[in-house]
C-alpha cells in the first residue's frame, strides 16, 4: 500500500471530520446557521450568551461530543476485534454486548428506577453492567485451563446475545405500551436523548480515549494476532494475556458507548472494512483512520437526522437507524466492486 494514498486518505478523513463537526454545531432546530456561528464565537470566546441560545449550543456540542466518542469507540473496537477473532463479520456487538446492555436498559426503564452512580442514571448503569456481564459470560464459557478459545468465544457470544435478546423481548411482551416505546427508542441508538449530559459525555470520552489509545499503542501486536494465534506466539507475543487485554478494553469502550446512547449499529463493522481497503491491513494507520472515520460517520448520521427534521419537517429518527441506512448500501457497493 503506497504511502501517498494513505496520507491523502488521512487528510481527507481529518477534513471530513472537521466539516461534519462544523455542520453539527451549526445545523439544527432552535438557531439558524448564521446565528449559530455568532453564538459559537461568543461561546468559545468566553462571552455571555442569552440563556436560550446557550442551551441550544450546549445541547448541540454535547450531542456532537457523544457522537464522536461513540464513533471512535465502535470503529476502533470493531477493527481490533476483527483482528483478534480473525473474522470479517466481527463487530463490537458480536459478543452479545448490545443485547446485554439492552436488557439492562430495558429493566431499568421498565422498573422506573431513579438514582444511579455519580452523573449516571440507573438506565446508564444497568446498560453498562448488562453489557459487561454479556462479555464476561462469554469469556467464562470459552476459557478453559488458562486458554481462551476465540472460536468458542464467538459461538458463546452469539448465544449470550440471543439469550439477552429473548429476555428483552420477554420484557417488552409484558410491559405497557409507554414503556415499550421508551425501550424501543433506546434499542435503536439515540443521540437526541435529553438524558445525555455534558458530564456523562466527559466520562465516556475519558474511558473511550484510554481504550482507543491502548489499541493504537498495541497496533503491532494486533498485526501479529491477525496472522493467527500460533504464528503470533512463535513471533514472540504473549497471546493469552494479549487476548484478555484487547477483550477487556473492547468491552469497556463498547459498554461505555452503549450505556451512553444505546447500541448504534453498523459503524463498528463498516468503518474497518471500508478503511482497510485504502489504509492497508497494518493496524497503526488503520486504527487511526478508523477512529476519524467512525467519529465522522456517527456525527454525519446525527447531522442528517437533525437537518431532515429541521428543513424537511421529517420526524426525528434515531441516529442508529441512519448509520445503518448509510452504512449498509455503502458496504454492499464495496463488496460488489471488488468481490472481497
Amino acid at each position: 500500500m503506497e504511502v501517498g494514498r494513505r496520507v491523502k486518505t488521512f487528510v481527507a478523513l481529518l477534513g471530513g471530520l472537521a466539516a461534519v463537526c462544523a455542520a453539527s454545531a451549526l445545523i439544527g432546530p432552535g438557531l439558524g446557521p448564521a446565528a449559530s456561528a455568532r453564538a459559537l464565537a461568543e461561546f468559545f470566546g468566553g462571552g455571555v450568551l442569552p440563556a436560550d441560545e446557550y442551551a441550544v449550543i450546549l445541547v448541540r456540542l454535547t450531542r456532537l461530543g457523544a457522537a464522536v466518542c461513540v464513533g471512535v469507540a465502535l470503529a476502533t473496537v470493531g477493527t481490533s476485534l476483527q483482528a483478534l477473532l480473525r473474522n470479517p463479520l466481527a463487530d463490537p456487538y458480536i459478543l452479545g454486548i448490545a443485547a446485554g446492555g439492552g436488557f439492562g436498559a430495558a429493566v431499568a426503564t421498565v422498573l422506573g428506577l431513579s438514582g444511579g452512580v455519580a452523573a449516571f442514571s440507573a438506565v446508564n448503569v444497568f446498560a453498562f453492567v448488562g453489557a459487561l456481564a454479556a462479555v464476561g459470560a462469554g469469556v467464562v464459557v470459552a476459557r478453559a485451563a488458562g486458554i481462551l478459545s476465540v472460536h468458542a468465544l464467538l459461538l458463546a457470544g452469539v448465544m449470550v446475545g440471543a439469550f439477552f435478546t429473548s429476555l428483552i423481548l420477554l420484557v417488552l411482551a409484558v410491559v405497557p405500551a409507554r414503556d415499550q416505546h421508551a425501550v424501543f427508542l433506546w434499542l435503536m441508538g439515540d443521540l437526541a436523548n435529553p438524558d445525555i449530559t455534558p458530564l456523562k459525555v466527559g466520562f465516556t470520552a475519558a474511558v473511550v480515549g484510554v481504550c482507543a489509545g491502548l489499541f493504537v499503542v498495541l497496533a503491532r501486536p494486533l498485526d501479529l494476532i491477525a496472522l493467527g494465534e500460533e504464528s503470533a506466539f512463535h513471533l514472540g507475543l504473549s497471546v493469552e494475556r494479549f487476548k484478555l487485554v484487547i477483550l477487556a478494553c473492547g468491552a469497556l469502550a463498547t459498554a461505555s458507548a452503549v450505556a451512553l446512547v444505546g447500541p448504534i449499529g453498523f459503524v463498528g463493522i463498516v468503518v474497518p472494512h471500508a478503511l482497510r481497503r485504502v489504509m492497508g491491513p497494518r493496524h497503526l494507520p488503520l486504527l487511526t483512520a478508523a477512529a476519524l472515520g467512525g467519529a465522522s460517520l456517527v456525527a454525519v448520521g446525527d447531522v442528517l437526522v437533525r437537518a431532515a427534521a429541521d428543513y424537511l419537517s421529517m420526524p426525528i429518527v434515531p441516529v442508529g437507524v441512519f448509520t445503518a441506512l448509510i452504512g449498509a448500501p455503502y458496504f454492499l457497493a464495496i463488496l460488489r466492486r471488488r468481490g472481497y
Binding site: 480473525r86 501486536p221 501479529l224 496472522l227 493467527g228 500460533e230 504464528s231 513471533l235 492497508g280 491491513p281
Partner: peptide
C-alpha cells in the same frame, strides 16, 4: 516456526509479513 500452510486473510505485503518477525527485537 514455520506452520503448515495456513491462509492469511489480511493482505499484508510480503515485506510487511517478514518485518513482523522483527517483533522479537523491536517489541510493540
Amino acid at each position: 516456526f514455520v506452520p503448515q500452510y495456513s491462509e492469511v486473510n489480511l493482505p499484508y505485503s510480503v515485506s510487511e509479513l517478514a518485518m513482523l518477525a522483527r517483533y522479537a527485537y523491536l517489541g510493540p
